[in-house]
Design a protein around this nucleic acid. Sequence first.
DNA 1: ACGTAACCGAGACGGTACGTCAGGTCTTATC
DNA 2: GATAAGACCTGACGTACCGTCTCGGTTACGT
Lengths: 200, 200, 200, 200
Amino acid sequence: MTQTTKSSPGRPRSIEVHQAILQATLDLLAEFGYQGLSIEAIAARAGVGKATIYRRYNSKEELIAEAIECNRPQLTIPDTGSLWTDLEEVHKQAAELDLSPLGRQTIAMIISLASTIPQFAEIYWKKYVIPRRKAASIIFKRAKARGEMSPDVDPDLICDLMTGLLFKSILFQPETEEIKSYMRRALDFLLQGVTSKPSQ
Amino acid sequence: MTQTTKSSPGRPRSIEVHQAILQATLDLLAEFGYQGLSIEAIAARAGVGKATIYRRYNSKEELIAEAIECNRPQLTIPDTGSLWTDLEEVHKQAAELDLSPLGRQTIAMIISLASTIPQFAEIYWKKYVIPRRKAASIIFKRAKARGEMSPDVDPDLICDLMTGLLFKSILFQPETEEIKSYMRRALDFLLQGVTSKPSQ
Amino acid sequence: MTQTTKSSPGRPRSIEVHQAILQATLDLLAEFGYQGLSIEAIAARAGVGKATIYRRYNSKEELIAEAIECNRPQLTIPDTGSLWTDLEEVHKQAAELDLSPLGRQTIAMIISLASTIPQFAEIYWKKYVIPRRKAASIIFKRAKARGEMSPDVDPDLICDLMTGLLFKSILFQPETEEIKSYMRRALDFLLQGVTSKPSQ
Amino acid sequence: MTQTTKSSPGRPRSIEVHQAILQATLDLLAEFGYQGLSIEAIAARAGVGKATIYRRYNSKEELIAEAIECNRPQLTIPDTGSLWTDLEEVHKQAAELDLSPLGRQTIAMIISLASTIPQFAEIYWKKYVIPRRKAASIIFKRAKARGEMSPDVDPDLICDLMTGLLFKSILFQPETEEIKSYMRRALDFLLQGVTSKPSQ
DNA sequence: ACGTAACCGAGACGGTACGTCAGGTCTTATC
DNA sequence: GATAAGACCTGACGTACCGTCTCGGTTACGT
């Protein structure tokens, strides 16, 4: 179905151009936010014609989507042998990722776009929700196998509650450190009845 | 010191016009969403000159802000004598309010705008977060007094978790009914360990 | 037919206001020309409401017409006893009148408006053409009586030729002094064959 | 010095569009006059975006200038061998050109615009005054060579006097035929003393 | 003397056109 | 055939005035 090494006739699309477009997009995004981000400016910044962009993406949103998608690093799922140290690790990673300046900007924008363009909801779902749900699922499964956790806890629910709280915090709480501790407190609360937490 | 009946000179601003503008804004918002909401269309729909809008609001955002602020109905805090029926009632009210077509659109837009315009974060905070936190606080206090609930539960935390989840669901879950049942499940989970739930 | 002292009931229109409006109109006309002359600016300058202007005039043109008509000083027809000193005097008066900044602006504007608004053509005719023709007619008649001039010269033709030239010069010749000397030369040429010019 | 086949990069400006704009301008001008001539209407009539017009012209005046400039036919200088038949011919041409309905409109507008926008004075000067002065100059030079005319007559002065009279007549005299005969009479008068007019 | 009718300032009102800007499509010449 | 450049149509932007319409307040007559 898909041709693997089929090369179409004519000049191939330049990889440098591709990169330049994405980089320019991210630069301008970081500098001016989603508002004040024009295709015209991206083209100028990348030293590229507008048509070259439209040949690759059908809309501004698609372009931004790919720019974010390519740029966003992945979570690695820890396996320390203990539920709480695993969670600690995930919590640390997520905080680093999401609460950095660029991270906050990005999430805010994903949210913003998801609320208007359905296609973004999907991207977000794939790149953000699923990995976290998967991480939670794996960590919880291991914890259940170790008997650290009640077997009927729904990892997705926990994960969604935490993610929702994160969103809300990112939008409405400017203090990063407060978000971290509030999230931490929420996690403790959510798991208090269903796990055997070690005495700290 | 305070002038009670001070009236500026010149023709006073028409209240009908004011209302027409806000109504037109809400109508078009419900119909086309935030994108595709132009001042020109609002003016045309309201049967009003553009200048009349710009005389009142300096930007589209300001206008939308007031439209939402003026329109949004308030929650009434129930007092049925039982924690769970109270929650049932609040849950029903919130669902009706937030998950109606206009409600979803409005929330999505507030979220979207809050990420870029601080003023919107405030509106959301005042019109959404505070009332819900207050409702939760009162209901929980009564429940604690009745001994239905552990006294050290933080109502704000519960409320924020639920709000965050709602929020996330509205953005990424198109099925209204599924959101309702998922929210219901989340509430059960959150309160399972801290209350004496009646057998259903 | 006309009632002389009939006064309608109610407060009579203020004369000061009337004057202030006309003066403001002339001021702004001299300062900004016909373009850039807005009713709003006139009202502001005169310290008057717009309605007060529209109560008196149905259009900007009507207002300007009256402003000019009321303001324009008249030529006085000299009688020095000699054709050439009479002409000298008329020439001097007209130059002073027409080539002052306000004079140039006014003429330019009348010309400009005359092409579209018939009413302005009439103003020009009454305020510019007729007085000059009359002056020329009287001066020439006296000159003919004195035998200084051939009796079959048409004063209107001379006058119209001079007026047309002035007209053209005002539009296309910025240098006031050059206009004066060119007009002078034209006058000499026009009368050379039909008068006995004194040796200068 | 001059690049013959220099072509700037990018899509070249469309000639059809150019023509359509100018044609629409002239059409609307003839239909509604200078007042009531909006860029928006021109754009709509030409089937063109407003930006496309503003890319070419910085103002309505510039556009009108070019529309007129491109449209206005030139005089041809006759050479019949006789001053009076030459003048006859020029007179006929000018009458046909200037006193046609479009001609009157155009001249009125040139005058109108020249009085407010200096740039128009220049256009008029180049397209209107200079050609006529040149024609007069050539015809008179030939006449002087033939001995039909006194050698010290200034052709520019004659020409300007006639032009000025034409202007004045066009603005204030609605009857075309009367203008023609009056102009004819003026010409006779101007040249009576300086030429040997053939007996008619 | 006092009511009332027309005046006055201020400025809001529905409009029209302005000149600008960006979006997304197209047409060149060049690589 | 992809690219850089940039012209093209579309449509919304925010501004400036237009001419009309309320407002609250002020004269000056006519009873």
